[in-house]
Simulated assay, not measured.
Amino acid sequence: MSDVERTEFELPPDLQRQASSRPDDAPVNPVAQAGEQDVEKSLRPKSLDEFIGQPKVREQLSLVLTGAKRRGVTPDHILMSGPPGLGKTTMAMIIAEELGTSLRMTSGPALERAGDLAAMLSNIVEGDVMFIDEIHRIARPAEEMLYMAMEDFRIDVIVGKGPGATSIPLEIPPFTLVGATTRAGMLTGPLRDRFGFTAQMEFYDVDDLTRVVRRASRILGVEIDDDAAVEVASRSRGTPRIANRLLRRVRDFAEVNGDGHITLASAQGALAVFDVDELGLDRLDRAVLGSLIRGHGGGPVGVNTLAIAVGEEPGTVEEVCEPYLVRAGLMARTGRGRVATAAAWRHLGLTPPDNAPGML
């Protein structure tokens, strides 16, 4: 018997009704769960023709891959650069699919030692595509080994330690390295120069994102009105990953509060529940703007001060919030700190001062 005394209490009436209407014996259906996961995977396009947006990158990649296939050689190494969520990983999968080869995936932070990379390269089959996400974060010893692998298709494996150590050259079959980075400026010159083609992924416009939302809704088996699809797309910050995520949350709202059909009203209601406003700003974005304007008169303010005010790490504010706020014209970065623009003041329902950036 526990020494802690149990306390009886009553649920509020609304929670009592919810509890009584919820079936007690309704566990997660494993078949439905597996099917849901398969559907989520199917949201990724499987070919360049199926990929929506990025027309220039698709055209360039098509030339690179088609030319290599006609010559019967492996394509040059490919670097995918751009902000998160634009389809760099998906594009790497498409490259392997177009070439009819296997895709071996890893990430820069996982390659801490040269031996980690050597283990992966030793299992490479000729023509394989090796994908390294966040390649700018690869450790220096592994990066130096990667130079030789990319250029000469061989690596030197060190056997033993101290004066008796021996370097054994290991030939590896020709392969194509696909690197993805969100911080191209952090790549070293020698690594960047070894890529034969660099694809710069751009943010999506609303029309392309609307096509992404409609495609995803068809795959998810969800009916969505045209104006609702535009509403979700316009709040997705130019990013397909966010568009697909918001669509799933809107789907939840429509199923719980209606018949599952997504109308403009249900889309707006769902996005309001999940704190996504008409510009795509979430709670943290608005907290940063609110601190900048209400707490510091619109700036200039340092990023550390803003981070403390909103209870986040400086890196989160700088890497998650700032890029979109700057791109949306709501914040300006100056030598003295961050400054709120006139559009930011108006977005929060406030009158901007005469010296706010963007005032006419």
Score class of each variant (00 low, 15 high):
S2V: 07
E8S: 12
E10K: 15
A19H: 06
R22M: 14
L48Y: 11
P55Y: 02
R58G: 03
L63P: 00
K69Q: 09
E98M: 07
L99Y: 06
L103Y: 11
L103A: 12
R104E: 08
M120R: 00
L121N: 08
I124N: 05
D128I: 08
M130C: 11
I138D: 00
L146E: 14
M150I: 15
M150E: 14
F153Y: 15
E171L: 11
P174I: 09
T188F: 07
R194G: 09
T198D: 10
A199C: 03
Y204F: 13
V206D: 08
D208E: 14
R211W: 02
V212M: 04
A216H: 13
A216D: 15
S217K: 09
D227Y: 00
A229E: 07
E231H: 06
R241A: 11
L246N: 12
L247F: 07
R248P: 04
V250I: 14
L264C: 02
A265Q: 11
S266L: 08
L271K: 01
V276M: 12
V276F: 08
V288T: 14
L289Q: 05
L289A: 03
G299H: 07
P300M: 10
A309H: 08
V310Y: 07
V310P: 09
G315K: 09
V317P: 06
P323Y: 01
A332Y: 00
G335N: 03
H347K: 08
H347Y: 05
G349E: 10
N355V: 00
